[in-house]
């Protein structure tokens, strides 16, 4: 979109290259923890506790001789070590990651569906209909973003207890069906940008609010809906606090609970296995990010825009 102007402004001299180097260093520093975690998940256990901290696995033998990083022997060792670590993490006797993947997928899909639908409806009410009190109520929406979960976790627990939801998945996905402040906010910003004439024309043709919502706004808002769905999927996939407080039975653990259990088991879990388990739990989100990073980042950036 702005490649033309970008290329034009590259002209500068040494200062510019130094800035580039600085920026790349910053980027690498942000990537380093993840990369190191990934490299650790490929190492043999002994190397994870070794004092000479290396980034890539070495696979030194008894005499301390390590194969060259580009040699076939290295690739072979890397492959077998990776397979060993990942299968040890995946098929460990304590946690059943297969089951947790299913639980997490179920909860995430249900909450994405509910969140997008309900928030879109509410966002329509906050953007495409003019009514008294709308904007002050919207301030309340924004204010709710400020209530920390840790403040309401205890009373919410009591509430779910009264409703008989403890012991079910309901606390993890039903609230999403009542929309969420952030998603409402995101969609409202987008809906406000759609020209008024479109649904006014439709309403003159006898179309109800529901009709213009369903046939005009939603189709136009597909990109925003996709971003909202992505963000909600990632949020509920990664959620740790809600399952921590509301889920008791191990049969209902989500991946994040399973990962915490696996890491904290008695006697400690070897770092290489824990890191492999972490990457197993993160894989779907990382893959999603690879495919959609641009839209995701743009979507998040709109948060800070003034009206």
């Amino acid at each position: 979109m702005s490649n033309g102007s970008g290329t034009r402004r590259w002209g500068g001299g040494a200062g510019r290259w130094m800035l580039t180097a600085l920026m790349l260093v910053v980027g690498l520093m942000f990537l380093a923890p993840l990369f190191w975690m990934f490299a650790t998940s490929l190492k043999p256990a002994a190397e994870t506790l070794s004092r000479d901290v290396g980034v890539l696995p070495r696979f030194a033998d008894e005499s301390g001789v390590a194969p060259g990083k580009l040699s076939g022997a290295y690739a072979e060792k890397l492959g077998s070590q990776a397979a060993a670590n990942y299968s040890a993490a995946f098929d460990n006797p304590v946690t059943d990651f297969r089951l947790y993947i299913r639980n997490t997928a179920l909860v995430s899909v249900l909450s994405v569906a509910g969140m997008v639908l309900s928030s879109a409806i509410a966002a329509y009410g906050f953007s495409r209909i003019k009514w008294r009190g709308r904007d002050s109520l919207f301030l309340v929406v924004l204010a709710t973003m400020m209530i920390p979960f840790t403040v309401i976790m205890a009373p919410q627990y009591l509430l779910y207890k009264h409703m008989g939801w403890i012991g079910t998945f309901a606390p993890l996905w039903v609230p999403a069906w009542f929309g969420g402040a952030f998603t409402v906010f995101l969609l409202r910003q987008f809906f406000l940008g759609i020209p008024r004439e479109l649904d006014e024309a439709a309403q003159l043709d006898g179309c109800s609010h529901w009709g213009s919502f369903w046939r005009i706004i939603l189709p136009l808002a597909k990109p925003a809906l996709a971003v909202a769905a992505l963000l909600q999927f990632i949020a509920s996939w990664n959620d740790f606090l809600a399952p921590l407080v509301f889920i008791n039975q191990q049969k209902q653990y989500t991946l994040m609970m399973g990962l915490a259990l696996y890491e904290r088991q008695h006697g400690g879990t070897p770092w290489n296995h824990v890191m492999a388990a972490s990457f197993i739990t993160m894989a779907p989100v990382l893959v999603l990010f690879l495919f959609t990073q641009r839209a995701l980042i743009e979507g998040v950036a709109t948060q800070g825009l003034k009206e």
Partner: peptide, 20 residues
């Protein structure tokens, strides 16, 4: 992308990684 990516890392995995 590199700067944004960590915000998607679940806190459990981040805690494990940073602890190490």
């Amino acid at each position: 992308a590199a700067v944004f990516l960590p915000t998607l890392v679940p806190i459990v995995a981040a805690a494990i990684g940073w602890r190490y």
